[in-house]
Design a protein around this nucleic acid. Sequence first.
DNA 1: CGCGACAGCTGAAACGTTACAGAAAAGACG
DNA 2: CGTCTTTTCTGTAACGTTTCAGCTGTCGCG
Lengths: 351, 351
Amino acid sequence: MDSLDPSSDSAPAEGTRPTLKTIAFMTGLGVTTVSRALKDAPEIGEETKRRVRLVAKQIGYRPNRAGVRLRTGKTNVISLVLDTEEDLTGFVSDMIYGISETIAETPYHLIVTPYSRRNDPMDPVRYVVETGSADGIILSRTEPNDPRVAYLLEHHFPFATHGRTAIGEDHPFHDFDNRAFSAAAVRKLVELGRRRLALLPPPPDLTYHQHMRDGFSDAVQELGATEVAWSGISIDDPIDVIRAKTARLMRRADRPDGLVAASGGATFALVAGIEEAGLTLGSDVDVVSKQSSKLLRWYRPELWISQEDFRLAGREVARAVLGRIEGRPVAALQSLAAPGEVVSCRMPSTT
Amino acid sequence: MDSLDPSSDSAPAEGTRPTLKTIAFMTGLGVTTVSRALKDAPEIGEETKRRVRLVAKQIGYRPNRAGVRLRTGKTNVISLVLDTEEDLTGFVSDMIYGISETIAETPYHLIVTPYSRRNDPMDPVRYVVETGSADGIILSRTEPNDPRVAYLLEHHFPFATHGRTAIGEDHPFHDFDNRAFSAAAVRKLVELGRRRLALLPPPPDLTYHQHMRDGFSDAVQELGATEVAWSGISIDDPIDVIRAKTARLMRRADRPDGLVAASGGATFALVAGIEEAGLTLGSDVDVVSKQSSKLLRWYRPELWISQEDFRLAGREVARAVLGRIEGRPVAALQSLAAPGEVVSCRMPSTT
DNA sequence: CGCGACAGCTGAAACGTTACAGAAAAGACG
DNA sequence: CGTCTTTTCTGTAACGTTTCAGCTGTCGCG
């Protein structure tokens, strides 16, 4: 009964990776049947499916990604578009860990597509879309009218952003509630008796700059405090610049007695600047900072911090792209993370 | 003269990505010729090559990776195998940036293959080798007799390690000269008048634990200082544990007056522990620490630090895998980075 | 003039997968 | 008993690339 045609039914070579053909040969079925059995198609008999699955498991069959990709266009890849300038906060690694957690049980791989802030941020996005090198894209550092978002929407390419845009209803995102953070920070400072407050904000082009400003200004106004204008600075400035500008600010006659910092990394420079100006943290001035890594906690005991969880952000934003790829409605793929409570760094520990 | 056979010479559809067939159609050549022309094969005429290259550029041809991969088995992918436990030093992002720099001008993509320290570290490595999902692997956290290295050598799979093994001659690596670092650290402490020195080492299973110990012990002995034993601790311990253990150490009668710390993140906890024990940095005890991020610089002015450049490490280790993939001799793919000079954090700055 | 060498090109086949159209067997129904 | 339907399975083609073997025409050389 054996087929004598050597072209299609021959036994597969020994040392090579098993393919559908291997299973087909072992089960005596056709390649097509095996393919469908493995994806649990309704037109395959239960008994057959079990047999195929058993053999597949036994010989450790793993579908060849190149084959699938060539045939279907599906890459099973998520591209994380990353700005490769200094990352003082360590947010990138946490984000990657979070993304990894989400895609761990899926067939997706994570591929890092880097670009330099100094080049065109559109480059990596265009590259991925044009070459179809991923099924979905994760963006960070989003701007209110982000051209990358516009481009991706226009090309109907699945993506999710870390941070919102001005066209937020139309695409999946995950964001930290920076408005709530800065408002809570102001509240804490006022509670501490501070009245003249200033903000060390994110770079002005990013969306969350405005969120943080809004939360800050609204809370200041609502609580009857005063906002001390501090312009031409952001947490993305070089660390020495932040220190120098902070020192200059704190030497002004109208200096603030309360500061809110948008990132943990910048806070190191901020505090250094304060001390350089001869002022004492906790008595002359209080500082509330976001932190992502755990290190700020040990910097100065007088600091106040609120935690931002980038691992969570990674998990969420990955969930969002995957959802988008599967065609789920956008509304279900938007989430906001509440800031951690503003807590003191004064040793609350035992041991 | 037009071919009437519709099967192979038909015009390609309008909106789709250009393929070799597209170029073949436009130039009137065969697909094979186009393929060879683009890889500058000697059997294609110069004139033809120019023509093909021009058309390819004009229409923005980019080879389909899945096609290449399916046919040749070449993935053009480098896999970075990453432990997804906390990364306090931010070394992961810098490393990724460095790798990105090296592969930017190559066709390679970087894919992150995560695993948990709590699972089998062999899993990701086996996965990549078995599924052939990358052309090369980058490993970190290498151990003296690293089973992953043994496995990869055995399977003749290209890889490079960040950190050495006990079988270092046989594989490409890049490493930071931890021996030189700890020796320099000891030298600095002795120079500062310290005599009783202790080391906060890397985890004992990693290769560079021994390197750092060796440099430390040798220098201590050579300079006539005393080593204060401090066991059961490493920079990978939870930050609170490090603080608590440091406090305990510094309350001992035979406490050290000089400390060397193997990572910047751990130093935060180390210093916190010292201060918790009621001692003053710079007078009771001096600390020399490695740092990778720039933040430690601002932590305590009395600290001494030596820089480790993980971006450089990423560049080098990527160069090493690529070299291995191209079959270059191993000896040329091993490098050691000299530690940065041990410098004081006392503000040396102007402005 | 004949022959071989060579430059320059070509189509067919294959990599592993899935989509499509269809076939064989078995039961339902008149 | 014949026909129709359903279930279950099958072969072929195609995705885009490279490899293989081979073809054509030109030229050098005896």
